[in-house]
Amino acid sequence: MPFESFVDDEISTMQEQLNESGRALETHEIQVPLGSIMHHVPSVLSGASVQDVINLMVSHDIGSIFVVSDESLKGVIGERDILLKVLNKLGDYANLSVDHFMKCDPLTLKPEDLLDTAIQHMAQGGFRHIPIVDDQHRPLGMVSVRHIISYLIEHFPQEVLTLPPKPIRNAMRAREGA
């Protein structure tokens, strides 16, 4: 069937591309400085309310927020902290200080540190985010698991973008199961 042969062609093309030499992500690509892939994250001042944090998360469509004091990073508060420590546990949490719920003194890295270092810290520590700070410990940005995955995808465009779309995959599966 023409449809099945199209799928077979796609798969074999993918395999050929993968088997070509030079499909490795080179060392220098993994060693990109974190300053070039970090993204902006808003901050609240130490003492801000939980409601302020929730409003910022929703308005910025972001999962974690910096907490600062005298411009220096004091902690990070994320959706998981809200889920674990606030939801259905406290009656009127909206006006409580974020300081009670944030993760204090998180592991930080510098903008000149490299992506592979961040990946190793995340894997070993189970972190989803690593704040990037300057020499005065002022937050400059965040490196998150999601942005690392996006970075990897952007450096594997061939393999990822030529994947058969889902309906074709489902048809493939149905055929394989037949």
Binding site: T27, D116, I119, H121, M122, A123, G126, V145, G177
Partner: peptide, 26 residues
């Protein structure tokens, strides 16, 4: 599975953990 019954879940952290095995350690 093939009957759309849930058998597991993966997270972006699982992927980072997997990739970390193949790159330079700290």
């Amino acid at each position: 599975d093939e009957e759309n019954k849930p058998v597991g879940i993966i997270t972006s952290k699982d992927i980072i953990k997997y990739i970390s095995q193949f790159i330079k350690s700290i």
